[in-house]
Design a protein around this nucleic acid. Structure first.
Ligand SMILES: [Mn+2]
Ligand SMILES: [Mn+2]
Ligand SMILES: [Mn+2]
Ligand SMILES: [Mn+2]
Lengths: 163, 163
DNA sequence: TTGAAAGTGTAGCCTAGGCTACATTCCGTG
DNA sequence: CACGGAATGTAGCCTAGGCTACACTTTCAA
């Protein structure tokens, strides 16, 4: 086939930092990988966080949290909601008996409270810098799961000094 | 078993708004479901957006984007990277031939540019309100995928008036 | 020039989180 | 008190996005 032997481009041999032969992987690369990993891990708790927050809301509003109500509010089928509730139970966040609605364990309530506070803080910050209400609510629903404690603290300070 | 017939709690009959019998579902419920749906849809493009941005970076830095480099930067196995690249190709964002590295289509380059600008804007906003650099970088990696155009515009305005 | 190391690709497995279809249970009315 | 409709639960299917193990190709150094 006489394929022309293509030399690999870039990074010839001693490109930039010598990387000290400690097994490769420059610190900048590590840092980026760690950030992506953090994002993945935050994302993996996002759905459960939203469910716990929502269940707490329903319990506070009406005294019960039924799968169908949860499903309608989240916008998924009831079968999907029930499977997610099963994961919550598996993780010790919720309890339920057949046909009897869902309740939160102490761990679940604690998580719900943290998530609720964080949600409100994110919305308030977006509003404070001028984001329209509906966009703030919509964006916060995704953003909240990626806001670290350090960033959350800064949000709080910003909101205190502002008004 | 003599299970006491538990009456369902809450929402007795005429709770709050009459919901007009148009098939149920109060507007507030709809709005919340729509927000959750938006979040799900934003999330589903997140990984592909990050890959496209990263591939553009690698191409700019060194002229090539190889699966192993992508995998190392993202922090996943090379097999996972290759499968994601396959999705990018399926979606018309990238091209590649066996053993020859990955390139972006015009659509892929356009997406990369948008994602790059948005990423920077989110980081800059976090920095502007006082978030420490490393937290800003880490959180932005997740937040960016949930920032709407409306919110992005507000971020731009905020950054212009600030410094 | 050739062989070993590095890179690439494939196969197969797993979980999360969606869905539809169907079976079962509950509950308010007639 | 019996039904019929609503709610609940189960089964099975799908894709995304992780992983390891193994096979094949390329590249580079001896
Ligand atoms: Mn959320
Ligand atoms: Mn929320
Ligand atoms: Mn990202
Ligand atoms: Mn990014």
């Amino acid at each position: 086939m006489a394929k022309t032997t293509l030399k690999r481009a870039g990074a010839p041999a001693g490109a930039g930092a010598p990387m000290s032969a400690t097994g490769g992987k420059l610190p900048a690369e590590r840092a980026q990988a760690r950030r992506f990993g953090k994002t993945r891990s935050a994302q993996s708790s996002a759905v459960l966080e939203d469910y716990v927050e929502l269940i707490a809301d329903l319990l506070a509003e009406s005294g019960e949290a039924r799968p169908t109500d949860i499903a309608r509010r989240v916008g998924v089928s009831h079968a999907t909601a029930i499977k997610t509730i099963a994961r919550l139970k598996r993780d010790g966040m919720a309890t339920s008996k057949p046909y009897r609605g869902v309740f939160l364990t102490p761990a679940g309530e604690a998580l719900a409270e943290r998530v609720r506070v964080r949600h409100r803080l994110v919305v308030d910050l977006l509003l404070a810098i001028g984001v329209p209400a509906e966009a703030a609510e919509a964006d916060a629903e995704g953003i909240e799961h990626h806001v670290s404690d350090a960033t959350l603290k800064v949000f709080t300070q910003f909101l205190q000094q502002k008004p």
